[in-house]
Design a protein around this nucleic acid. Sequence first.
DNA 1: CTGAAAGCGCTAACAC
DNA 2: GTGTTAGCGCTTTCAG
Lengths: 336, 336
Amino acid sequence: MKPTIYDVAEKAGVSIATVSYVMNNQKVGKKSKEKVLKVMEELNYKPSVLASALTGKRTTTIGFLLPDLANPFVAGMARRVEDRAHERGFNVVICSTDFDEGKEALYTSLLKQKSVDGFILAGDFKNAAVVRELLQEYTPVVLLAASHPSLSVTSVTVDDFAGGYEVASHLISLGHEKIAVIAEDAASSQGRIHGYKQALQDQGLEIREDMIVISNSSSEDGERLAEKLLDRSDPPTAIFACNDLLAIASILVARKKGLRIPDDLSIAGFDNTLLSRSSDPPLTTVEQPVQDMCSQVVDLLIEEIEGKSKTKQRIVMLPKLMIRNSTGVCPLENKV
Amino acid sequence: MKPTIYDVAEKAGVSIATVSYVMNNQKVGKKSKEKVLKVMEELNYKPSVLASALTGKRTTTIGFLLPDLANPFVAGMARRVEDRAHERGFNVVICSTDFDEGKEALYTSLLKQKSVDGFILAGDFKNAAVVRELLQEYTPVVLLAASHPSLSVTSVTVDDFAGGYEVASHLISLGHEKIAVIAEDAASSQGRIHGYKQALQDQGLEIREDMIVISNSSSEDGERLAEKLLDRSDPPTAIFACNDLLAIASILVARKKGLRIPDDLSIAGFDNTLLSRSSDPPLTTVEQPVQDMCSQVVDLLIEEIEGKSKTKQRIVMLPKLMIRNSTGVCPLENKV
DNA sequence: CTGAAAGCGCTAACAC
DNA sequence: GTGTTAGCGCTTTCAG
């Protein structure tokens, strides 16, 4: 059997309390301490986190709910969150929710039974009721790349409005006027769309709602929507996709239709995933400071877990437009 | 406070044992059972997994150690593993090890302290000592996309030899004779290289060890190596990269050098990640049956956890060559 | 400074 | 069937 605190105590000739004290760095006589440490070493003793947690201590495990781990942008965040969490001595249990309220509720419930110390909810968390419940029972929660205006919960996001504004402005400066948007059914996309609209308005361009379509975030759906947009009698000269996956899907469709990018059609994405560098042409996109965002959420969550957090806060980080070759000047014949 | 088994027992007018029995589907009088169930509902009672596990039951949590979650192929596996685990009622805690023996040892140790029910080790797990230890203390372990010939541990892999053989044969059939390999420092790459060599040998072609280089798996290193290969006085006409990331890196380098793909240079990858579809040209690569592999490992691990597994086994699944446009006939001037 | 003992929430004999 | 009770391994008063 694995050695327990009793084994250590006995072999060291002290009580289990003393052993516990040395593990928790409490005042212990030098002699006893050394002896205990030595025995722990000899027995290769590792305290049980379960037993410890049962008495009220932390499990040093956090739950990380995200939309879909297979999405490269999400996986990138997960890696960063994991790294930071490990640095701080926490493990991460990951659950993909697919934007499904049922899964969101189920997984949070399961993880609560397992006594995770807190939750990071990434992307658009649909089930507000669950968040509200977490909040009111004082379970530490922070949102990542998502925020809930009506809820008092700390969050870390990128400035979606600014991102959308910059992309649209960039496209407008290239002479585009018919700029379509392929969005996700998520709050972040709404922010990007707002930014896009503002840019259009600031330049006195007409905002056409029929140029804005919502996808279910899958590549297939992205292709379907891109195809539909390009088949219009009055097709856009530029497409702003709310993530790189959708942008790539658009590129694929455009290529299939024999359109040259960016000569015939400009395409911009969002997230700056590795997809955007490998695509042809390399994708103009918006970079999110993933590393900083993830370190921050983890730190904020741990502050809450440790009860050190003063106030809830919403941190908004600035995105950065990465201009590459998928966007170019608007073809003349399409100008009004 | 959260309700405990005592609260339920009291309110239902029974003993805690009875409550415990109904939770574990043991024989309980119909009346009592209904009453207890009703109270559990009213109190919204959720049993503590910690307390339950402390008495010897499972935590229904498995540890999943992988090289790097940010790698799209790995993230794809993680998603599948997660899905299957959830279907079976398990949660997954994920740890990226970066092929670092220290991290491998550290994370397994931490997770053991947290009493995970078992481990899935994916990719090349360097620290054989750790695996051996796990095995000898009867901790359930299975390997995914990796195997350890000298260890008696169940594993699920793709047939790397076959994959390498097929890629090389395909290239040879296109007339290539100078085929370079950019590999990872992993056992899977060794298998692929063996397959590649066998194909060359079967066709009576010379095997040149200086055409085989090992990367540290990063894109940057991939680019560096590809560049070095192409700068040789006697450059290859085709590159077989042992994963898509490295293949993309090669494409990037080739493009930078003004080489046309596949006219001047053919490039093949491995894994069939979404990168291979979005790249230009689309990448010829080898598909691994990720979904099946992942369902299998999870099922096998759970069998071990439940003590139902009869014997250790090594399952090898067959890969599938996906021919796309990054490979083409060998340019004539380069033929010997 | 250290030991004895009472829990933490649940399971599992062992009785009744 | 169901209640009593002794742990599971660790933390934490409370004495001494």
